[in-house]
C-alpha cells in the first residue's frame, strides 16, 4: 500500500497524468479477509437458568402445597357443570361479538354520515356506552324487569297493544348478559371501525366515485375491505377482552364458566383449585381466538406487499 490515495483516484481519474493507472488496471488495494465477531447479549445461559430455577421453584411450591388439592382440579376440569359453563361462555362471547360488530358498524357509519341527526345519535351512543362500566351495565340489564314490567308492542300513548310479555320472560340472565356485553362492546368497536375507515385514502373514494359508484357501494366494495386490514388486529384484541369480560356475568348468575366454577367452590371450599379450572379454559379460549385472528389477518393481507 505505497499509495493510499489510489483508492480514491482510481475510479475518478483513471486517465490521470504521469503514470496513474490506466482504465484497465485493477485498483491497487490489498485485500484481506477479516472474520467478523458479532456482539452477543451478555450471559444468556445464566439468565435462562435463573428464570427456569424461579419458575420451577414456583411450580414446585404450588404442586406440593399441602393446602391445595390438585385432584379436585383434575376431577372438575371436564365435569358437566364446567362444560355447560364453558359452552355458555363461548356462546356469550360469539353472540356479543357478532351483535357488537353489527351495531358498531352501524354506529361508525352514522358517526361519519353527513346527516347531523345520525351523527349526534352516534356520538351520544358512544359516549354513554363507553362511560358506563360493563359491570354496571350487566347489573342494570339483569334487573331491568324491576322498572319495565312488560315489553309491549303497540301504538305509543294509546291503549292499543298487539302483544305484551313480562320483561323477565324475555330478559333472562343470558339475554341480559348478551345485551350488556354487546352494547358496551359496540361502542368500542364503532370507534375501531371508524379508525379503519378513516385510514383508507380519499383517493380510493374519489376513484370509486369517478367510476359512477354510489356511496353505499363504495363503502361496501372499496372502503370496508381495505379498512378491514386495519380493523382486524384491534378487533381481535377486543374479542379477547370480551371473552374475559364474560366472567363479569357471574354477578347476575349468568351461568357462564366462572359462575359454575364459583358455585362448585362454594360447596367444596376448593377455591384456588376451581379457579385453576377457569384459568385453564380461559387460556384455551383466548389461544384459540388468537390463532383464528392470525389466519384472518393472513387472508386479508392479499394484494399487500410485506
Amino acid at each position: 500500500m505505497s499509495n493510499p490515495e489510489a483508492i480514491h483516484e482510481a475510479p475518478l481519474a483513471p486517465q490521470g497524468a504521469g503514470g496513474a493507472p490506466g482504465p484497465a488496471d485493477p485498483p491497487r488495494v490489498e485485500r484481506v479477509d477479516y472474520t467478523i465477531i458479532r456482539r452477543k447479549a451478555p450471559w444468556p445461559w445464566v439468565l435462562a437458568a435463573a428464570v427456569t430455577a424461579v419458575a420451577i421453584a414456583f411450580l414446585y411450591g404450588l404442586a406440593t402445597n399441602p393446602a391445595l388439592n390438585w385432584g379436585v382440579t383434575g376431577e372438575f376440569l371436564f365435569s358437566p357443570p364446567v362444560m355447560s359453563g364453558l359452552w355458555v361462555t363461548i356462546q356469550l362471547s360469539i353472540l356479543s361479538m357478532l351483535l357488537g360488530v353489527i351495531i358498531g358498524l352501524i354506529i361508525a357509519l352514522w358517526r361519519m354520515s353527513t346527516n347531523r341527526v345520525l351523527q349526534t345519535i352516534a356520538t351520544v351512543y358512544i359516549t354513554v356506552f363507553r362511560s358506563v362500566p360493563v359491570l354496571v351495565q350487566l347489573l342494570i340489564w339483569g334487573n331491568i324487569g324491576l322498572i319495565i314490567r312488560n315489553v309491549t308492542l303497540g301504538i305509543p300513548f294509546t291503549d292499543i297493544a298487539f302483544f305484551s310479555i313480562p320483561t323477565n320472560q324475555i330478559v333472562a340472565p343470558f339475554t341480559a348478559a348478551v345485551l350488556g356485553l354487546a352494547l358496551a362492546e359496540s361502542a368500542y368497536i364503532a370507534e375501531i371501525i371508524r379508525g379503519g375507515i378513516i385510514s383508507v385514502p380519499t383517493g380510493q373514494i374519489e376513484a370509486a366515485s369517478a367510476l359512477g359508484m354510489t356511496r353505499a357501494r363504495t363503502t361496501r366494495r372499496i372502503v370496508l375491505p381495505q379498512a378491514l386490514r386495519v380493523i382486524i388486529p384491534p378487533l381481535g384484541n377486543q374479542f379477547v377482552t370480551l371473552i374475559k369480560a364474560t366472567s363479569l356475568v357471574s354477578v347476575i348468575a349468568g351461568g357462564d364458566l366462572l359462575t359454575q366454577v364459583i358455585n362448585i367452590s362454594a360447596t367444596s371450599y376448593r377455591v384456588i383449585e376451581m379457579l385453576a379450572v377457569a384459568v385453564f379454559w380461559y387460556l384455551i379460549l383466548v389461544s384459540a381466538a388468537s390463532i383464528g385472528q392470525y389466519f384472518l389477518e393472513r387472508r386479508l393481507g392479499r394484494g399487500v406487499k410485506r
Binding site: 385514502p201 383517493g203 380510493q204 376513484a207 369517478a210 359512477g212 359508484m213 392479499r302 394484494g303
Partner: peptide
C-alpha cells in the same frame, strides 16, 4: 348522489396517484 353517479358514468378519470383498488387484481 345516485343521479350524480349516473351522469359520471361516461366520464373517465385518471389520477396522479393512480388510485387503483389495492385489494383487487
Amino acid at each position: 348522489q345516485r343521479e350524480v353517479c349516473r351522469r359520471r358514468e361516461r366520464i373517465g378519470m385518471v389520477f396522479q396517484h393512480f388510485n387503483l383498488f389495492p385489494h383487487m387484481t
